[in-house]
Nucleic acid binder design. Structure first.
Lengths: 173, 173
DNA sequence: GGGGCTTGGTTCAAGTTTGAAACAAACCTA
DNA sequence: TAGGTTTGTTTCAAACTTGAACCAAGCCCC
């Protein structure tokens, strides 16, 4: 079958999106690197842990939430561990597992970095959008994410074998 | 002044956006890596060159369009050059300059990869959006990009010193 | 017309990401 | 309960990215 190319509207949207997200990610990364000494992805690790019960999450769980590969997370947590912001513990009831725990120092670092981060997100994104647009943004990307990971199982999702796992594991088995 | 945190709506939008774009970029990268042997950023280099007059663009120009750093582009073009998809030439009227040219082989590779790429973009993004949402997406990210690079010069843009350059240089001086 | 600043591009080291193994514990199931 | 598969995590090499130098060539201007 012959390719269904993008319509002019779709092309414009696609290009705008690419340019926008590259600049956006860049601005965020730079700000965090400067003020917190870590890239966005690492900040997200701290942020995610801080919201988890007991500030702890199993590696696979964390990877799932971050939409990151396991090996990426391993590397990142190792680095954060060296910095004393995160600690690794063994999973009680599953000797294979390992759990990342946010240390007090990690929490402090996070709280320290948060205001600057939020300011950036605001000035770069939300200050430029109307309330309706905020809703539209949520709607659009929720749909995209659902399609890509939700067990909706169409062609596009087939390529994401390992990104679908989950295993509630913060409290009791 | 105390931090203006994100509203619940903004938080939801921000999280949805993060998850969505990570999954999206991931799907795109994987598809291109598989079928064309290169990441999205490299594909974009070929695509941009293919649309330029004479299929050639000065390095800085190309970097500007790609929203990439110069050093990143240098590395990428070197790789593509090794693969024979791009060639470097000296800029005629500015002995400092160097120009990236899409080779015939590069064009062929691009044309070969394009259908699969478009299919992915469709299935992952546009097939899930209504026409109105396509318009909203364009609008939102156009605003973001303009704010971040446009010479609108507010605080957020201060951090992007080198990303603003431009120097029309494809045709005559 | 010789400093001195700017611009275009590359280089280099350090950090990060990727995907494909490798490993080990857990879970079947015959 | 031994053997095979699945699941959780790490390891490893190769690829990529970053930011800070660095080197030239243009530009200014006295």
């Amino acid at each position: 079958m012959t390719t269904r190319w993008l319509t002019p509207e779709e092309q414009r949207a696609w290009r705008a999106y690419i340019a926008g997200y590259l600049l956006l990610e860049d601005a965020i990364d730079r700000q965090l690197q400067q003020e917190a000494g870590m890239p966005h992805a690492y900040y997200s690790i701290l942020a995610n842990l801080s919201e988890a019960p007991e500030r702890r999450l199993r590696m696979t769980d964390l990877a799932e939430r971050l939409k990151a590969t396991r090996s990426r997370l391993t590397y990142a947590v190792t680095r954060l561990e060296k910095d004393g912001l995160v600690r690794r513990e063994d999973c009680e009831w599953d000797r294979r597992g390992s759990v990342a725990v946010l240390t007090d120092e990690g929490m402090a670092t996070l709280e320290n970095a948060a205001p600057g981060h939020v300011d950036t997100v605001r000035s770069v994104l939300f200050d430029r959008l109307t309330p309706e647009q905020v809703g539209q943004l949520e709607e659009i990307f929720t749909q995209v994410a659902r399609g890509l990971q939700g067990d909706g199982g169409d062609a596009a999702a087939e390529d994401l074998p390992w990104r679908r796992r989950s295993s509630p594991c913060s409290g009791t088995p």
